[in-house]
């Protein structure tokens, strides 16, 4: 923000997320970065990369859970580096390579967003084959991709299926999204049962398959997703139910968590206390709609994610398949996709 003091990447990011509730965090981050480049007057590659780096750092620092966001910023950065190294691959024209790429980015910013949304639709059309006639699907709330998939399946009238919906606790940031999906499905004549997280094991006997969304898909093929996904995975595995993850491929993130506590974010989940502790400030009664905004509205000194917005890590051996817009992948395919862009 030294280069041009009037541009605030965080504000831009927040505005973009706010304007379009359909947007995911990585795509919003890419949008914000594109705008940053547009606002700036950089003219060389090194300058651009430097600018990106600064903005990315600012963005990451501003929200509590930057995993999903960093998938977008990393992807964007790698894309720039790769194309700047091999400008011919873009076929943008013989003249000034850098300017051509810059123009391409600036003029197609909206296109990226469109494409990101399309990929959700594409996933839905892939994924709806997984839902068979007479099946009962268990899902956990909040994911827009899962919502799109189920809605798509519901619209094709040939499949009759039922949904068991694990609703997030009402205080979590994306409870509304879940409610919306449930009422949509019910309107399409799909019987939906809503259960709490504690009833997952109980309901699993009636369930044929589990479909979850993800905030980030990490290098080893595991996923980072809302708290409770890991236990759903474990339970599904122990009951022999297929466990599918639905995620756009721009959520692939270069991260290799070894355990739950190896994530690069701070979470206030395990909060050990004794009785004579002073009352910790329970000040965050946030009711924002979107996960991204909720994460960054209140940011005081030692915050981590609260229990209801926390995430956990589901290791790859619990996952039967990852449904992306480029096809259905096994967890081991994720690393290959990442290697393709990083090395």
């Amino acid at each position: 923000m030294t280069a041009n003091s009037d541009f605030d990447i965080v504000l831009t990011y927040r505005r973009i997320l706010n304007d379009d509730p359909e947007l995911t965090m990585p795509v919003a981050a890419i949008e914000a970065l594109v705008e940053a480049i547009a606002q700036s007057s950089v003219s060389t590659v090194a300058e651009t990369l430097d600018l990106l780096e600064r903005h990315t750092a600012a963005l990451k620092a501003s929200i509590a859970n930057p995993i999903s966001l960093s998938a977008g910023t990393d992807l964007f950065q790698r894309y720039l580096i790769t194309t700047l190294n091999r400008p011919a691959s873009l076929n943008l024209g013989p003249d000034d390579d850098f300017r051509a790429i810059r123009n391409h980015l600036l003029s197609n910013g909206k296109l990226f967003v469109e494409r990101a949304k399309q990929s959700r639709e594409k996933i839905a059309s892939f994924g709806k084959h997984f839902i068979r006639d007479g099946a009962t699907v268990l899902t956990n709330g909040g994911s827009r991709v899962v919502g799109a998939l189920l809605r798509r399946a519901a619209e094709s009238s040939t499949i009759r299926f039922r949904v068991v919906y694990v609703v997030p606790s009402s205080r979590s940031s994306d409870a509304n999204e879940g409610d919306q999906t449930v009422s949509d499905l019910r309107a399409h004549n799909v019987p939906v049962a809503t259960i709490s997280n504690s009833a997952v094991a109980y309901s699993l006997g009636k369930v044929d398959m589990v479909i979850v969304g993800a905030e980030g898909v990490v290098e080893n093929g595991g996923i980072i997703s809302r708290m409770g996904t890991y236990q759903m995975g474990l339970l599904a595995k122990s009951k022999g139910k297929p466990f599918y993850v639905v995620a756009e491929s721009h959520k692939f993130v270069r991260l290799y968590p070894l355990s739950q506590f190896d994530l690069p974010i701070e979470q206030k989940v395990l909060d050990f206390k004794v009785t004579d502790d002073p009352k910790t400030s329970k000040s965050d009664g946030k009711d924002a709609v979107d996960e991204g905004i909720a994460d960054m509205t209140l940011k005081h000194a030692s915050t981590g994610l609260n229990a209801q917005d926390a995430v956990d890590f589901t290791p790859p051996d619990l996952i039967s398949g990852i449904i992306t817009e480029s096809g259905v992948l096994t967890p081991s395919a994720v690393s290959e996709e990442l290697i393709k862009i990083w090395f």
């Binding site: 992807l75 011919a88 990101a116």
Partner: peptide, 24 residues
Amino acid sequence: AGPLVNSLFGLFSQPIDTPSATST
């Protein structure tokens, strides 16, 4: 051929995707 098309960069690819343009 044309790793740009298949990979994660698909999001950024050129708007008009002729096969001749993208696969090097």
